[in-house]
């Protein structure tokens, strides 16, 4: 058995916010013990968060010919947590044009994560982007 490190997490399952602790054997790359949970879901969350944390990413991309300047998008399923900022950075250069339908794939397999970026709303074509009648 190698050196054991303890990593702390805040459980997000409910407002109780259990302070979770995960002991990992650094040599074996194995979880030795999980403490601090008060339900089964808490324990599962600790293990997931420790081994392969994932996040649903929601952000916006630029859109032309629409009522609004931004189109809201999300990942088609949770992406690896350490890719969140990189994904958002990749979306910086993306620019789409109305019309767009909710669920349309905006970027396929973003950063080779196997995750698609999809639109989360319809955006109809709009003559004047800001629609103000002066």
């Amino acid at each position: 058995m190698g050196e054991i490190v303890t990593v702390r997490y805040l459980c997000i399952g409910c407002p109780l916010g259990c302070r979770l602790e995960v002991d990992e054997d650094l040599e074996e790359h194995a979880i030795v013990e999980v403490r601090g949970f008060s339900c089964r879901r808490g324990k599962e969350y600790a293990i997931q968060e420790h081994t392969a944390p994932q996040r649903m990413v929601t952000t916006t991309v630029a859109i032309d010919k629409a009522r609004w300047a931004r189109l809201p998008v999300r990942t088609s399923r949770p992406a690896p947590k350490d890719k969140v900022l990189e994904i958002c950075r990749a979306l910086r250069t993306v620019r789409v044009s109305a019309p767009i339908a909710s669920g349309d794939i905006i970027v396929r397999n973003v950063l080779n994560t196997g995750v698609n970026i999809i639109a989360t709303r319809d955006m109809v074509e709009w003559a004047s982007p800001q629609n103000i009648e002066a």
């Binding site: 649903m56 929601t58 952000t59 916006t60 809201p72 999300r74 909710s102 989360t120 709303r121 319809d122």
Partner: peptide
Amino acid sequence: LLQCIHCGFGLHRFGEELTGPEYAQ
């Protein structure tokens, strides 16, 4: 909800987790 582009809506109403715009739509 149209500006609440994050997830966390609809688990009770639609049985799945939606973003604000998806719920609104």
